[in-house]
Design a protein around this nucleic acid. Structure first.
Lengths: 188, 188
DNA sequence: TAGCGTTTTGGGCAAACGTCCAAGACGCTC
DNA sequence: GAGCGTCTTGGACGTTTGCCCAAAACGCTA
């Protein structure tokens, strides 16, 4: 049988996913079309519906995959910071790499919205975020933060919110936020 | 001249805006169509392009108008709270009224995203949010909060972020967040 | 009542959409 | 080289979109 063809097909599938990721951010979830994805992936338009049942299916797979990898990397790198202050500073520096209008930031925001209308995506995304929050709370607890569960919730929400706000005003000074965040985590 | 006609026309224009507001939240910015808005407003499809140059124009006017009124009310009611703790509790209670999947929450999120792609909307929305942040910082300063500028930024971002997160998990306990937020605002 | 300015109507138009499909291309086994 | 399974192609289909426009409706003035 055509084993090489199957491998090549898998590569095409992956290229479609990789092409879809920046497009969701650039054009918006609803504005991504089959032809758009196919063109950026360098394949014929019809190939999308060979590998995916629908455009929505492709977008769900692409956005969930990207977000999962992103959060994973975030938590993994955070774990390497020695204490709360270093972790906080790293988080703020990490966020400074995104201006809120880049494809990665926009993809996450688009996925939040799409999730509110696609149950399957909401379930998957909710699990991702809950897992992220739990791991963040664990790290906070391990490093002596006060009220780690609630603090992780506020911190996680603030990260998403700040990314949105930076889309409106990229000059927003993230480093200046270290002080109030530190107070929040300080015990007693 | 037809003065009554002009008044009636203005009423129709307002009805189109009012019809567009929930639709942006329900269907999503890109999914709102002329015929959809016209039907909900109870008018013929063509009337949209009589009162607005384009669908995008209508959506910009509708979303900006709604957001402005919402933030205004928020700041006005917050000003009535006597101290930081009462203000914080009120904010959390206010947010609990939205489950993150209601049209109002979704409209705000949709507007953030649309703003990233429509310069005119971004400018208008950025001004709204900056003004809100400044007024929130003013209230915090008046009531003795530490680092009011930075705290207002974190607080404002956390509100938006929490609304997004509640769309994924409506059971998220907002009242439990009062403690870390209080710590953040505490002086010293 | 006739004329005028404004608003409203409902259908028409080209363009773009998601999806499908018959035909071809490719690599593999006999 | 023939046959087979998988992947790829490019165009066709019906639907829906934003926008436009001639005609009708309306309230007003003269």
């Amino acid at each position: 049988m055509g084993e090489a063809a199957a491998i090549r097909g898998e590569a095409t599938r992956r290229r479609l996913l990789e092409a879809a990721v920046p497009l969701i951010g650039e054009a918006g979830w609803h504005a991504v079309t089959t032809r758009m994805v196919a063109q950026r992936a360098g394949v014929a338009p019809g190939v999308v519906h060979y590998h995916f049942a629908s455009v929505t299916d492709l977008l769900i797979a692409a956005s969930a995959g990207f977000t999962r990898a992103m959060l994973d990397r975030f938590v993994r790198e955070l774990a390497e910071r020695p204490d709360l202050d270093a972790g906080l500073d790293w988080m703020l520096a990490e966020m400074a790499r995104y201006d809120g209008a880049d494809p990665a930031s926009l993809l996450v925001a688009e996925t939040y919205l799409a999730a509110s209308r696609i149950p399957r995506l909401r379930d998957e995304f909710a699990e991702l975020v809950a897992d992220f929050r739990a791991r963040l709370a664990g790290w906070l607890a391990d490093h002596g933060a006060a009220d780690p569960e609630a603090a992780a919730t506020v911190l996680g929400a603030a990260v998403d919110g700040l990314i949105l706000h930076r889309g409106l005003d990229p000059r927003l000074d993230l480093a200046a936020l270290a002080r109030p965040l530190r107070s929040m985590l300080r015990k007693e």
